[in-house]
């Protein structure tokens, strides 16, 4: 059954506000992370360790937000006993907040490379990191937009962006492996690069999770059971 999700129709106006605020909290966290990611890319491009440090320090704010969201979810479950779509929203928000917090951690890991001043001076690396980074920013934007509007089509489009990110990730891995082969004495420096590239790729996966939650939120079906390809076909068929 297709369930148009309505937040503002409960008899209790306060409950409406609570659920609205809960959903909004994910978007606030997402917005902050998007800004963190953009700053990270600036720090990488312009080699600004100070900016990277500031981004890392900002992560505490995101950790705090995740804790608050978790507490609010628990409070709503305890006091409101949500059922059906309301329960799905609460569970989804808790899971999305967890994914967003992990994205924050990955961003910190990326910034460590800039802060360490051990970043190799390589054109392909800089171009590759900026490429994958920009794709991540675009995917994050798409994901949050899909979540905000609970738009399944937008979720699929954002979800599909992950395959491009994986492609760039693989290319970067291969190039890094080549570098290690040709300069074995710099292996430790390049291993840091590998971790950084891996963190970018993990952010893509986390965004993918959030896109899948949009489906769970709307239809209640187990997101893992449905392939995104099938969903896309179904949506195209229904116009």
């Amino acid at each position: 059954m297709k369930r148009p999700f309505q937040l503002n129709t409960h008899i209790s106006a306060k409950y409406n506000q609570e659920l609205e605020a809960l959903k909004h909290s994910v978007l606030t966290m997402g917005g902050l992370l998007e800004q963190q990611m953009v700053n990270t890319l600036i720090a990488i491009e312009e080699k600004l360790p100070n900016l990277a440090e500031r981004v890392s320090l900002n992560d505490a704010k995101i950790d705090g937000m995740e804790q608050q969201v978790e507490q609010e979810c628990m409070r709503i479950i305890a006091t409101r006993n949500p059922a059906a779509s309301d329960l799905r929203l609460v569970m989804t928000v808790a899971k999305a907040a967890n994914d967003l917090e992990r994205i924050g951690d990955d961003i910190v890991r990326i910034n460590r490379l800039v802060q360490s001043k051990g970043m190799p001076d390589s054109d392909f690396l800089l171009a590759g990191l900026l490429d994958i980074g920009n794709r991540i920013v675009s995917m994050m934007r798409g994901t949050l937009d899909a979540f905000a509007r609970q738009d399944e089509k937008a979720a699929i489009i954002a979800h599909k962006q992950d395959s491009d990110i994986d492609r760039v990730y693989k290319k970067l891995l291969e190039q890094t492996a080549e570098e290690i082969k040709s300069n074995p004495e710099e292996i430790y420096m390049w291993m840091d690069v590998l971790w950084t590239v891996r963190s970018f790729e993990r952010i893509g996966d986390r965004c993918k999770n959030i896109c899948e939650y949009v489906f769970f939120l709307n239809s209640g079906t187990n997101r893992k059971k449905i392939s995104m390809k099938k969903n896309l076909k179904r949506l195209l068929k229904n116009g």
């Binding site: 059954m1 309505q6 129709t9 409960h10 059906a84 779509s85």
Partner: peptide
């Protein structure tokens, strides 16, 4: 019925949306 009701009316009732 309490997690994934098939009918909108049921969903509205169990989530406190009936006015």
């Amino acid at each position: 019925l309490f997690t994934l009701p098939a009918k909108q009316q049921t969903e509205d009732y169990i989530t406190g949306r009936y006015g």
